[in-house]
Computed example of a mutant assay.
Amino acid sequence: MADKTSVEDLRQMSADQLTEKLIELKKEQFNLRFQAASGQLANTARVREVRRSVARIKSIQSEKKKAVAS
């Protein structure tokens, strides 16, 4: 699941693709939190990576909405 999508790749995605990616990351984030709570999480750094990826996608979505509005 260790998906390293660059910012440039994210910026080239359509709004629908970004939404799909966001949903995928949110599901992974939920699963990681569940694993952490049950003591089964092996790679604790992945939690941080996923959280930052979610924020990155939300920022890009916001930028795209502002660009369309102006």
Rank of each mutant, 00 (worst) to 15 (best):
L41F: 05
I57C: 02
T19Q: 07
R56M: 12
T19G: 04
K65P: 01
V54R: 00
E28P: 01
A69W: 02
A37R: 14
E49Y: 09
R48M: 09
A15F: 00
V50C: 03
F30P: 01
E20H: 07
E63W: 04
T19W: 03
V50I: 13
S14R: 02
A42C: 06
R56W: 02
K27G: 03
K21C: 03
E63R: 09
F30Y: 12
T5V: 14
E8A: 14
V50G: 01
N43C: 05
I57A: 01
V7P: 02
E24L: 07
E24K: 10
T19V: 08
G39D: 06
Q17Y: 02
A36N: 06
S62D: 15
Q40T: 12
I57H: 03
T5Y: 10
N43F: 09
A45M: 12
I60V: 07
Q17F: 00
G39A: 07
M1G: 12
I60K: 00
A2F: 13
D9G: 06
Q61I: 07
E63V: 15
K21P: 02
A2I: 15
M13A: 03
M13P: 03
K64E: 00
I60P: 00
K58I: 11
R51G: 10
A42R: 14
N31Q: 08
L32N: 00
T19M: 08
D3A: 12
V7Q: 08
A67N: 07
K4L: 13
A36E: 09
E49S: 11
S38G: 02
L32F: 01
L41I: 15
R56C: 05
R46Y: 06
A55V: 13
S6Q: 08
S14H: 02
E28M: 08
R46D: 05
D9W: 06
I23S: 12
A37Q: 09
E63F: 09
Q12N: 12
R56N: 07
N43R: 10
E8C: 06
R11W: 07
E63G: 04
R33V: 05
R11A: 08
A67F: 09
E8N: 11
S70H: 09
R52N: 15
Q35N: 07
E63K: 10
A45E: 14
A36D: 08
K65G: 03
T5N: 10
V68I: 14
K21M: 09
I60N: 00
V68R: 11
V7W: 05
F30C: 04
N43V: 13
M1I: 11
V47D: 01
S59C: 05
E24V: 09
L22P: 04
Q17P: 01
L18D: 00
S70P: 09
T5G: 06
A15C: 05
S53W: 05
I23K: 08
R52V: 15
S59Q: 12
Q12D: 12
V50D: 02
K66C: 04
G39Y: 06
A69I: 12
N43G: 04
A2D: 11
S62Q: 15
S70D: 11
F30I: 12
T19A: 07
